[in-house]
Design a binder for these strands. Structure first.
Lengths: 224, 224
DNA sequence: TTATTTAAGATAGTAATACTATTATTTAAA
DNA sequence: TTTAAATAATAGTATTACTATCTTAAATAA
């Protein structure tokens, strides 16, 4: 029996569930490819349809607009990361080791997970680095938030916050530190590769440097 | 005699210098207003021209496209912040006090500076929080960087990095910590106001909480 | 003063984007 | 076997992101 990882998605994000059909799965697969290759601004439903060999109207039956599609694949990514986090920290009792695993999970370039047929997690990780913040940096962030579009991100942030509190129950900013870790892991990666003078990793261009930087930052601030 | 603060801008950002004419100054003024009110995605040159009482073609004589206009006003902001930083830290010898001033300057909501007639710094600060990262999160970040579009940001990052090194000459990540301070000051502000569960400041919604959080983060990581 | 350059206003036009609508065809479920 | 649902094919619209041209007004130089 083949085990397939299914991530439960917020139905308000789509008009028709893309997991339930070949066309749907192709929409996800090719969206990730195209956004990864050309960026979200250059991404259109027309190009997507051409890439699939379907039509623009076909895509619109699944997603209202490209922003919801972006939020969909980003939500999927956070759900997948949450699963990886639970899996990797399962049976570990030391919260410091757990938190180190989290930092590594968020900072390291991801390998494609073969249990998810139509999703390339490595590309998705790159999309999160370059386009992730565009999911919420909009004028309609409030409405989107009311519809729970960012729940997977919030859940992850809470889970990491819990681990931080396990390390130091008195630490006052577990949520802020949690969102800081997530965002800075991505941002330093982007800067390292595109605006290297904003980092100290320009020579090596190695994510393990980001991990060291973040570990120092995090463990020095949560120690009493 | 009236002193007016002039910030030197990269001429590659514009076709005609907006500082040199009334129309130009109106373009800057109304761009800030419109981007602040409706977000960068909803901002078009047509709406801008209507708001000024000029024409689309008129705006295009100053800026090639709306992205360059965004980069222009963001560069202007970083130039202004650099000036504020130099002014406020002038004659202070203690680098710890300097660094605290920097954190406050970057985190606190800004008041309009009357010495700059056509620019509303308070609105500009809000634009930086919501739209700042869109200046570089593009597919053409490399080309833009080659044209020095992000120099004011880099200069600021270097200046803050210098102060960090004054606090602790052995600290290994002055640039990364510097870009982290700048970005997290904005990000936590955005989260506090729009996605409060990603922070620990949801009750007070007070920037001074962000300052405390950042100070703890920064000074714990740079102490040897 | 007149001639000349320059900026700005007015208007038109185009390709691409972000959709909506309609109809025909294929596929799957009752 | 009938019916419903999904998809493909095609067309069309409003808006966006520009480019081009022509005229007028204002500044400046001869």
């Amino acid at each position: 029996m083949k085990l397939e990882l299914q991530i439960k998605m917020n139905p308000s994000l789509f008009l028709r569930d893309p997991e339930q059909s070949e066309l749907g799965k192709n929409i996800i697969k090719h969206s990730i490819q195209l956004i990864h290759d050309n960026g979200f601004e250059a991404f259109t439903f027309k190009k997507l349809a051409e890439s699939i060999g379907s039509t623009e109207a076909g895509v619109y039956r699944y997603f209202e607009n490209k922003h919801k599609l972006l939020v969909y694949i980003i939500s999927w990514y956070w759900g997948w990361i949450q699963f990886q986090l639970n899996y990797q920290t399962n049976n570990i009792s030391d919260p410091v080791i757990k938190l180190k695993k989290v930092i590594t999970l968020l900072s390291k370039n991801v390998e494609d997970d073969i249990t998810t047929g139509h999703v390339d997690e490595a590309q998705l990780h790159q999309i999160l680095i370059s386009e992730g913040s565009k999911a919420y940096l909009t004028n309609h962030v409030g409405k989107d938030n009311n519809q729970q579009f960012f729940q997977p991100y919030k859940d992850l942030c809470n889970a990491v916050g819990e681990i931080i509190l396990e390390c130091n129950p008195k630490y006052k900013y577990p949520h802020s530190l949690s969102s800081t870790i997530i965002e800075i892991a991505h941002l330093q990666n982007f800067f390292m590769n595109h605006l290297p003078s904003l980092t100290d990793f320009s020579k090596s261009k190695d994510e393990s440097e980001i991990i060291k930087y973040l570990e120092e930052l995090v463990f020095n601030t949560i120690r009493d």
